[in-house]
């Protein structure tokens, strides 16, 4: 059986004046369903490009990307939008909440365009914000905002949860809680999670670690016994 997510020789090039920058240089890897995968690499290694392509926010120039059997590399803009709408959950480093909406409304922003979704309040309770439903983002701490962001991503029951440095703007302790939440979600809901980080220390908690260097996958390691986040220190 094919893997849930398969990238095969994905290329992405940017034309900057006369210089061609290759952001993805024949990237290939797979992620199985229900896995907690971490893409790790230093700044500029091409992690975000891969995540953006995988999240349907960007397109690749070459290669195939199979998600649950569909080649999204061949999708049109419209299909990509649909793909983002129904299949993908995104968690950003800077949360990207709509400041003018309450926590609950930010979640509803995602659910009200979907067809199959979780109740916003329920999801927020699950991420531990049951009592902050009608707070505006400005009234929430960074961690809380990130939880809202995760709740927003989860509420639409995505096939794939993509997280771009979710702890990048958070302090150590809060970062850990967020990672725990993501890990738990993965395990509890059998959710496939792909997380980008430059922090090598996180890798032990992942089922699969994809190392990237110079826009290429340098190494993929499988971790048969991931350690819970609580045990990891950095």
């Amino acid at each position: 059986m094919a893997a849930f997510v398969t990238l095969d020789s994905v290329y992405k090039r940017y034309q900057m004046g006369e210089v061609t920058i290759t952001a993805s240089d024949g990237v290939s890897f797979t992620v199985e369903k229900g896995e907690f995968a971490v893409i790790v690499g230093s700044s500029g290694a091409g992690k975000t490009t891969i995540l953006n392509i995988l999240g349907g926010m960007d397109s690749c120039d070459e290669g195939t990307i199979l998600v649950d059997g569909s080649n999204i590399a061949a999708y049109t803009q419209k299909e990509l939008t649909k793909y983002r709408r129904y299949d993908i959950g995104f968690v950003f480093q800077f949360y990207n909440l709509v400041p003018n909406l309450t926590a609950k409304e930010n979640v509803e922003l995602a659910t009200q365009i979907g067809t199959d979704y979780l109740d916003a309040e329920e999801v927020l309770k699950e991420v531990g914000l049951g009592d902050r439903l009608s707070n505006f983002p400005a009234q929430l701490s960074g961690g809380e905002q990130q939880r809202v962001s995760i709740a927003r991503a989860l509420a639409k029951k995505p096939k794939l949860l993509l997280c771009d440095e979710p702890t990048g703007a958070l302090d150590y302790q809060t970062g850990k809680t967020i990672l725990k939440l993501l890990w738990d979600t993965c395990r509890k809901n059998n959710m496939t999670v792909i997380l980008i980080t430059h922090n090598q220390a996180i890798t032990p908690m992942a089922d699969r670690v994809i190392h990237m260097k110079n826009s290429k996958v340098s190494e993929v390691t499988l971790n048969p016994h991931p350690r819970p986040i609580e045990e990891i220190e950095w």
């Binding site: 999240g55 419209k78 939008t81 709408r85 990207n96 709509v98």
Partner: peptide, 16 residues
């Protein structure tokens, strides 16, 4: 623009 980009990412159609 961030707000608009966000809702785009969330899968809002152009029309929406």
């Amino acid at each position: 623009i961030r707000e608009l980009a966000t809702i785009k990412v969330l899968g809002f159609y152009d029309k929406e």
